[in-house]
Design a protein around this nucleic acid. Structure first.
Lengths: 337, 337
DNA sequence: GCGGCATTTGCACGCGCTTGCAAGGTTTGC
DNA sequence: GCAAACCTTGCAAGCGCGTGCAAATGCCGC
């Protein structure tokens, strides 16, 4: 293929009149090398355009510096926002992100993890889907660290970061009730993701505790289009809801557009709407959606700081998880406030 | 750090009763190995959870399989859409994407390219910013391939993929004129990206050719918020424009929201608007924006197929670039059609 | 001037893998 | 039946680097 000819440490050593080990040490923080030698080496290296080969370094150090991000539906606002802060935080701590898109086939989360193993990634962060238990075990046994974000898994071993979806659902119910709503609905996708289901069941349970029923409708993917379809279904019922909690902002946007433009329902006068994620459009003038903000930065920081925290205390991958709080962002789609 | 203990080829060899070379060959397509040996090896490998170490393989083969994506503003709809198709196509051709976020400091495109060199990436694809010429030369000299997307650079060596922005600008002018608009405006960000500037100058030039003037306004980043500010500036002029070409859909969304909700101007009756990119929201009911579609899939395919096309014909990095056509997506923000 | 110590340097080995080379085994043609 | 051709296989070298170890250097106090 391409004749790649990178400058090697040997060339730098020769030009600087030192041994190859000296070059190696010059690029290793804290190594035993005199300041003057280091300076000389760095100078020559810069002039020659030398860069440490991280493939080889990873081989020796048994630590590649690579962290694998496993994600599907990568173009959705929430996902891309999360990826953005994750890459930022990772780079900040000297690591580099490898991105695996799992949109294609089905068992591809497993395939993605295998890819991570091949490149000897220090860790994998899973944002979508759910790996098979066997492959999870393989990763852990190999010493790879695993982080699940909003996956709410029962498996022990991986580090899990979740939001308190049920609690949020309870809060939004209170807001609906205070606005005088009684005919409640929940609009969900059919994805069946744990966090989506937690929002749903949390909302239903909270309503039931108040003696109220919730009409639950699920359809398709977590997308704008699904939101429209859900509106179609929920707003044509004989008992039209006066408050809808959408599992996601994207659904909420589609829902609102259908409600306004198709059914000429005014929000929030005739219908209260809430979403989840606080994607960018939620704040746009056309939506002004009341929703829950995902603490993206906190999630990323927690993930990275767990990675930095050294070896797992308990060798037999002990359970470890945190649950974060989602702030309610109050805008204009719920009356009162 | 973490005691990573991956299964090695030696262990597989021992268990399968073959030499280490046999294992290596079993995992190399087209290598000289009997079908039976290969089967045996793969079986044992699977049982043991062996995975070829791509760091070591990359070291030997002088080809890591890594392609570095260098990008800023990663959460914007257009960027994330591009990243999505790029990762897809790369994975399809057996490569893996490394993601470098350049949001932080300024010279960080250069830093990103250095990172790509360290990991001996087979190629780098630059979606944002502009690398220094010296570092570009270093990459090329090292045998790294370079792709610039929508960067419209003059440098020879890198492969450049661009859109025909000027031609698109001409087409949108025709559409405006046909709708009876004569008071033209162009809303741009201050980013000064070549493609944004090409849209602007193309539009201005086309208008001038028709004897018409264009009011050009530039402000801030390429964002929704900037669109609102631009609307503020353009719609309060004594001579209010009746047609605005926004350099980007995001700007157009902000512009339209401000026009409607703040100035109570109806689109397209009183004001025609066009954007560029065809991001997802452009098709949403609240916007129905007439815009140009970036041929994302084609861009990604062209990029990857250029990577696969083997060594550069001309050793001294010859110029090589393509210019793609942006389709006009006709929706509801221009009268007539 | 010299022994003791701390610092710096070079040597050589190994990380896990690929691959040229030659040896061994099997098939084919005559 | 034997040589030539082919397919497989193992050996060993080497990819670029980090690092333990021992040798070399420099410094200090006496």
């Amino acid at each position: 293929m391409s004749q790649k000819v990178f400058v090697s440490a040997q060339e730098v050593a020769d030009r600087a009149g030192v041994s190859r080990s000296a070059v190696s040490r010059a690029f290793t923080p804290g190594a035993s090398v005199s300041p003057e030698t280091r300076r000389k080496v760095l100078e020559v290296a810069d002039a020659l355009g030398y860069h440490v080969n991280h493939l080889a370094r990873g081989l020796m150090r048994n630590e590649s510096g690579i962290v694998c991000l496993i994600v599907s539906d990568l173009a959705s606002p929430h996902r891309s926002g999360l990826i953005k802060v994750l890459t930022q935080e990772l780079q900040h701590s000297g690591k580099i992100a490898m991105l695996v898109n799992t949109d294609l086939s089905d068992g591809s989360v497993d395939l993605a993890l295998r890819q991570a193993i091949r490149y000897r990634a220090d860790a994998s962060i899973i944002l979508s889907g759910m790996p098979d238990k066997s492959i999870t075990q393989l990763c852990l046994k190999s010493g790879q660290r695993l982080i699940l974000i909003n996956r709410d898994d029962e498996q022990d071993g991986p580090f899990r970061i979740n939001l308190d979806d049920e609690e949020a659902a309870g809060r939004i119910l209170t807001a609906f009730l205070r606005a005088g709503c009684r005919k409640l609905a929940f609009a969900n996708s059919q994805a069946g993701t744990p966090s989506l289901m937690a929002r749903e069941s949390g909302f239903v349970a909270a309503a039931r505790a108040q003696g109220l029923d919730v009409v639950v409708e699920r359809y398709g993917w977590t997308s704008y289009e699904s939101g429209r379809v859900l509106a179609q279904r929920l707003l044509t019922r004989s008992q039209r809801p006066d408050a809808v909690f959408c599992a996601t902002d994207l659904l909420a946007c589609g829902f609102m557009d259908a409600a306004r433009h198709q059914f000429s329902i005014s929000v929030p006068q005739q219908l209260c709407v809430a979403g989840f994620d606080d994607i960018e459009h939620a704040s746009w003038a056309s939506y002004q959606l009341t929703t829950f903000a995902q603490p993206l930065t906190t999630i990323a920081r927690e993930a990275v700081s767990w990675l930095e925290s050294g070896p797992v205390a308990n060798p037999e991958g002990r359970a470890s998880a945190i649950r974060l709080h989602a702030d309610l962002v109050w805008r204009g789609t719920i009356r009162g406030g």
